[in-house]
Deep mutational scan, measured.
Amino acid sequence: NMTTNERRVIVPADPTLWTQEHVRQWLEWAIKEYSLMEIDTSFFQNMDGKELCKMNKEDFLRATTLYNTEVLLSHLSYLRES
């Protein structure tokens, strides 16, 4: 059983600085953390943090459901504000 610390993704605090690998790690973490289903992860495959942060609700909806979109966008905006 993993502790919270072991599951925590170590990525730069500012999502606009993320590499493609960071985006992948964040997505994998969010899927596990929030038990998200039905995400087309290939949609995010060649995307870095700058591109991710430019995405709006409609962009996310092409890859996943409305619920997942709201979870991911709210977590992303939380990270950008902190």
Score class of each variant (00 low, 15 high):
1 N>D: 05
1 N>T: 14
1 N>S: 03
2 M>A: 03
2 M>P: 09
2 M>L: 12
2 M>F: 14
2 M>G: 15
2 M>T: 06
2 M>S: 09
2 M>W: 10
3 T>A: 14
3 T>I: 10
4 T>H: 08
4 T>P: 11
4 T>Q: 09
4 T>N: 14
4 T>L: 11
5 N>T: 14
5 N>Q: 06
5 N>K: 12
5 N>W: 07
5 N>P: 12
5 N>S: 07
6 E>D: 07
6 E>Y: 05
6 E>I: 09
6 E>W: 12
7 R>C: 10
8 R>S: 06
8 R>N: 15
8 R>T: 06
8 R>Y: 04
8 R>L: 04
9 V>Y: 02
9 V>E: 15
9 V>P: 13
9 V>M: 07
9 V>W: 12
10 I>F: 06
10 I>H: 11
10 I>P: 15
10 I>L: 07
10 I>Y: 06
10 I>V: 13
10 I>K: 14
10 I>A: 15
11 V>A: 15
11 V>D: 12
11 V>S: 15
11 V>C: 15
12 P>K: 07
12 P>A: 07
12 P>D: 14
12 P>F: 06
12 P>W: 12
13 A>K: 14
13 A>M: 11
13 A>V: 13
13 A>Q: 15
13 A>N: 15
13 A>S: 14
14 D>N: 10
14 D>H: 01
14 D>W: 04
14 D>I: 03
14 D>V: 04
14 D>Q: 15
14 D>R: 02
15 P>T: 03
15 P>C: 04
15 P>V: 10
15 P>W: 00
15 P>Y: 03
15 P>R: 00
16 T>R: 08
16 T>N: 06
16 T>W: 11
16 T>M: 11
16 T>Y: 07
16 T>F: 12
17 L>N: 05
17 L>Y: 09
17 L>H: 14
17 L>W: 06
17 L>I: 13
18 W>C: 02
18 W>Y: 01
18 W>A: 01
18 W>D: 01
19 T>A: 05
19 T>K: 08
20 Q>M: 13
20 Q>H: 13
21 E>S: 09
21 E>A: 13
21 E>C: 04
22 H>T: 05
22 H>Q: 13
22 H>G: 09
23 V>A: 02
23 V>H: 08
24 R>K: 09
24 R>W: 14
24 R>C: 04
25 Q>N: 14
25 Q>I: 03
25 Q>T: 11
25 Q>H: 09
25 Q>V: 14
25 Q>M: 07
26 W>H: 00
26 W>E: 00
26 W>N: 02
26 W>G: 00
26 W>I: 01
26 W>R: 01
27 L>I: 08
27 L>K: 02
27 L>P: 00
27 L>A: 06
28 E>Y: 08
28 E>K: 14
28 E>W: 05
28 E>R: 12
29 W>R: 12
29 W>G: 15
30 A>M: 10
30 A>C: 10
30 A>G: 05
30 A>N: 08
31 I>L: 05
31 I>F: 02
31 I>C: 05
31 I>Q: 10
32 K>H: 04
32 K>N: 12
32 K>L: 07
32 K>C: 04
32 K>A: 12
33 E>I: 03
33 E>S: 06
33 E>K: 11
33 E>Y: 05
33 E>R: 10
34 Y>R: 06
34 Y>I: 00
34 Y>E: 07
34 Y>S: 09
35 S>L: 04
35 S>Y: 05
35 S>F: 04
35 S>H: 08
36 L>C: 01
36 L>I: 14
36 L>W: 01
37 M>A: 12
37 M>R: 10
37 M>I: 07
37 M>S: 10
37 M>E: 08
37 M>P: 10
37 M>H: 11
38 E>C: 08
38 E>M: 09
38 E>R: 06
38 E>P: 09
38 E>D: 03
38 E>W: 04
39 I>R: 00
39 I>W: 02
39 I>V: 13
39 I>C: 09
39 I>T: 07
39 I>G: 01
40 D>F: 05
40 D>T: 05
40 D>H: 03
40 D>S: 06
40 D>C: 01
41 T>Q: 10
41 T>N: 09
41 T>V: 09
41 T>R: 10
41 T>D: 14
41 T>P: 12
41 T>Y: 14
41 T>E: 10
42 S>L: 08
42 S>T: 13
42 S>C: 06
42 S>H: 10
43 F>I: 07
43 F>K: 08
43 F>E: 06
43 F>T: 09
44 F>Y: 03
44 F>S: 03
44 F>G: 02
45 Q>G: 11
45 Q>Y: 12
45 Q>V: 14
45 Q>R: 14
45 Q>A: 13
46 N>M: 08
46 N>W: 08
46 N>V: 04
46 N>G: 09
47 M>S: 03
47 M>V: 09
47 M>F: 05
47 M>N: 05
47 M>I: 14
47 M>Q: 03
48 D>R: 05
48 D>W: 01
48 D>M: 03
48 D>Q: 06
48 D>H: 04
48 D>C: 04
48 D>T: 11
49 G>Y: 03
50 K>H: 13
50 K>A: 12
51 E>S: 11
51 E>K: 12
51 E>P: 01
51 E>A: 12
51 E>T: 13
52 L>S: 00
52 L>R: 00
52 L>W: 00
53 C>Q: 09
53 C>E: 03
53 C>W: 03
53 C>P: 00
53 C>T: 11
54 K>G: 12
54 K>W: 04
54 K>C: 07
55 M>E: 01
55 M>H: 03
55 M>R: 03
55 M>C: 12
55 M>T: 06
56 N>T: 14
56 N>A: 09
56 N>M: 12
56 N>R: 06
57 K>F: 03
57 K>A: 05
57 K>I: 07
58 E>V: 07
58 E>S: 14
58 E>H: 05
58 E>A: 15
58 E>Y: 13
58 E>D: 11
59 D>M: 07
59 D>Q: 09
59 D>V: 06
59 D>L: 05
60 F>W: 08
60 F>C: 02
60 F>E: 00
61 L>N: 04
61 L>S: 09
61 L>C: 04
61 L>A: 08
61 L>D: 03
61 L>T: 11
62 R>V: 14
62 R>S: 13
62 R>K: 14
62 R>I: 02
62 R>H: 10
63 A>D: 13
63 A>S: 09
63 A>P: 00
63 A>V: 12
64 T>A: 03
64 T>R: 01
64 T>I: 01
64 T>M: 12
64 T>Q: 09
64 T>K: 01
65 T>F: 00
65 T>P: 09
65 T>R: 04
65 T>S: 12
66 L>A: 11
66 L>V: 13
66 L>D: 15
66 L>I: 14
66 L>W: 13
67 Y>H: 14
67 Y>V: 14
67 Y>C: 10
67 Y>A: 10
67 Y>F: 06
67 Y>L: 08
68 N>H: 03
68 N>Q: 07
68 N>V: 04
68 N>S: 10
68 N>M: 00
68 N>C: 05
68 N>E: 11
68 N>L: 01
68 N>A: 06
68 N>Y: 01
69 T>E: 02
69 T>R: 02
69 T>N: 05
69 T>C: 06
69 T>M: 03
69 T>F: 01
69 T>S: 11
70 E>K: 07
70 E>P: 01
70 E>V: 04
71 V>D: 00
71 V>Y: 05
71 V>Q: 11
71 V>S: 07
71 V>L: 09
71 V>M: 10
72 L>C: 04
72 L>D: 01
72 L>S: 00
72 L>E: 00
73 L>D: 06
73 L>N: 02
73 L>V: 09
73 L>G: 05
73 L>A: 08
74 S>P: 03
74 S>V: 02
74 S>R: 13
74 S>W: 02
75 H>R: 09
76 L>G: 05
76 L>S: 02
82 S>P: 08
